[in-house]
């Protein structure tokens, strides 16, 4: 770790080192679809398996008789999510409720990686000759926007499913301001086109805004949390008595507080997913 040497310059290096992804190659520009962040994918899939395997086992062993402790915990979670989904989405929950469960548990697990000491995984990776590693998938824009764009696609899908393609397109030109009835009067044609343009613009803003804020909220929270953990790690890295005491103290405080953020952000992400999909089910 660069911080071991101390000094301001190397601490900045330490942080920027930790912010480098394990990528197939260095990205050119802000958007580069030729690059894959292997660390984000690896830890996302790992968390996915950590979610799926115990849950599948619990589901397989599920009996209507007296449940074990783990089954009870899983069932509580399932019932909690189902209740939320029922409250938000008025339609077929066959896919939406399991989706909400996946979002909640998966995001919570991915967020929880933030509670693991920041240098643990990069140090292990170094043993295997991996230079850069960011284990927190939700502090990667791709991690969170992958989810929020998936939700956007589902919103489009359920809009079409519930209202039909015609209904969905009709919604684009009539919501949120409504539109005039086209008659023989040419004035209504102009008004119709004008309102349609405005409505389309607002609908686009709505979808883009929803998706952007959905992904950005989770990313921002986790990225900030990760950065603060880096700073706290820097305190200990100074190897002064004050730095070590402050590292232990503030590290403990921030980690405890972060438990709340980890779960809260996962919950918010699930609720917003349900809200957006629920809106897709409603007729304007």
């Amino acid at each position: 770790m660069a911080s071991e040497a101390g000094g301001e310059h190397s601490f900045a290096e330490y942080i920027s080192h930790h912010l480098q992804h394990l990528a197939t190659e260095k990205a050119r520009g802000l958007i580069d679809f030729g690059v894959i962040h292997l660390d984000t994918l690896f830890f996302s899939i790992l968390c996915g398996l950590v979610f799926l395997i115990p849950f599948i086992r619990a589901a397989r062993k599920a009996t209507p008789g007296v449940p074990g402790r783990f089954q009870t915990a899983v069932e509580m979670l399932v019932e909690f999510v189902e209740e939320q989904a029922k409250g938000m989405v008025h339609g077929d929950l066959k896919f939406i409720a399991p989706l909400a469960l996946t979002v909640f548990v998966w995001v919570a697990l991915m967020n929880a990686i933030d509670l693991i000491p920041v240098d643990l995984f990069p140090s292990i990776a170094k043993v295997f000759g991996i230079e850069y590693l960011r284990p927190l998938p939700t502090a990667d824009l791709n991690g969170t926007f992958g989810l929020s764009i998936a939700v956007l696609l589902l919103v489009f899908y359920y809009n079409v499913k519930v209202k039909g393609i015609g209904g969905f397109l009709h919604q684009w030109i009539t919501a949120p301001f409504g539109n005039v009835k086209v008659t023989a009067n040419p004035l209504t044609w102009i008004a119709f086109v004008l309102l349609a343009v405005v409505n389309i613009a607002f609908t686009m803003i709505e979808y883009v805004g929803n998706t952007f804020s959905h992904g950005m909220r989770l990313f921002g929270n986790m990225y900030a949390g990760e950065l603060i953990f880096f700073l706290i790690a820097g305190l200990g890295g100074s190897l002064t008595a004050f730095g070590i005491v402050m590292h232990i103290f503030s590290g403990a405080v921030w980690a405890i507080f972060h438990i709340l953020i980890v779960l809260l952000q996962a919950f918010i992400f699930m609720m917003l997913t349900l809200v957006y999909i629920g809106q897709a089910h409603e007729h304007h």
């Binding site: 990528a23 990205a27 520009g29 802000l30 958007i31 580069d32 679809f33 030729g34 690059v35 894959i36 962040h37 984000t40 994918l41 996302s44 899939i45 996915g48 979610f51 799926l52 896919f95 399991p98 989706l99 996946t102 979002v103 998966w106 998938p137 990667d140 824009l141 791709n142 991690g143 926007f145 992958g146 989810l147 764009i149 998936a150 696609l153």
Partner: peptide, 17 residues
Amino acid sequence: NVTATLIFQLIVFFILA
């Protein structure tokens, strides 16, 4: 950076769900 990771993450998400 926004990269192809996004698309893979999206696919992983759908598979998990």
